[in-house]
Design a protein around this nucleic acid. Structure first.
Length: 258
DNA sequence: ATGTCGACGAATCGTCGA
């Protein structure tokens, strides 16, 4: 079973690229972030035609998430129960895979702008809300995958220039502490379960020729629960879509469960 | 280089967010 995550930065713009990518990478499930579409504008028919069933949840201009799966996903939940939120950031559902059922939590974590801002404080509260809900959710669903755009670079090796980024958004000690607290729930960073090329990033700024210079961050992640840990076969970043014309600034990440 | 995108509202660009 393959599960992917991709921040598409506007599904209206990126739909052809998504369909192309799914044609070449027929994953069993994928979560999308930054669809930036109200529910009535969601391209449900095109994705159904591509062989996916979809749960989606969005808003105009900002945010918006979706969960696509080959088999129908059940028990969907929008956002974080117990955490009141105006913003469409989390979509969760259970995807059957033969005898196994996997609870998939797709998240678009707040950016946070900069330490000391209201948006940073919102990010901190959001992360606390996510942690507390996941603690419960894991008791109900031992087979759980948390994936998406975390907007956190967990370690210095996830940053192209850790000195320049020290203390900056995505790299603050507070954000990294929250990432560690998620790991303490028994979640495991699937990407780091394997040997990986150095300078592996999932996001490159549109500015400054960052992709060409491979100046990026690893801020999109796939965390698997303890019960799934032994089943993880691979985890890779697919840089190819970043080379498209009019690319998203993020690359997809794919995990394979045996 | 704060050098790019994408969306929006109102206008053929300025502003915001990332």
């Amino acid at each position: 079973m393959k599960i992917a995550t991709w921040n598409v930065n506007s599904l209206a713009v990126r739909l052809p690229q998504l369909l192309d990518w799914l044609g070449n990478n027929p994953v069993d499930a994928i979560v999308l972030q930054e669809t930036k579409l109200t529910d009535d504008k969601f391209p449900h028919d095109a994705l159904t035609h591509a062989g996916y069933q979809v749960h989606w949840f969005g808003q105009k201009t900002y945010n918006g998430v979706a969960l696509l799966s080959k088999t129908a996903a059940v028990d969907p939940v929008r956002n974080i129960p117990g955490f009141a939120d105006e913003q469409a950031r989390v979509i969760t559902a259970t995807v059957p895979d033969g005898e196994r059922h996997v609870r998939i939590v797709g998240g678009y974590f707040p950016n946070g702008q900069a330490p000391g801002t209201d948006k940073f404080e919102y990010k901190m509260q959001w992360l606390r809300g996510l942690h507390d809900w996941l603690e419960d959710e894991l008791t109900r669903h031992p087979n759980l995958v948390l994936l998406g755009d975390f907007n956190i670079a967990p370690e210095d090796r996830d940053v192209y220039d850790p000195v320049a980024w020290a203390g900056q958004i995505h790299c603050t000690p507070q954000e990294r502490e929250h990432f560690q607290r998620l790991l303490e729930l028994g979640l495991h960073d699937a990407f780091r379960m394997f040997e990986q090329p150095p300078k592996s990033w999932t996001w490159w700024d549109y500015r400054n020729l960052a992709f060409r210079k491979n100046q990026g961050l690893r801020i999109d992640h796939i965390l698997v629960s303890e019960a799934l840990r032994g089943q993880v076969q691979s985890c890779v970043i697919d840089k190819l879509p970043r080379k498209n014309e009019r690319p998203s600034d993020h690359a997809p990440v794919v995990v394979e469960l045996g």
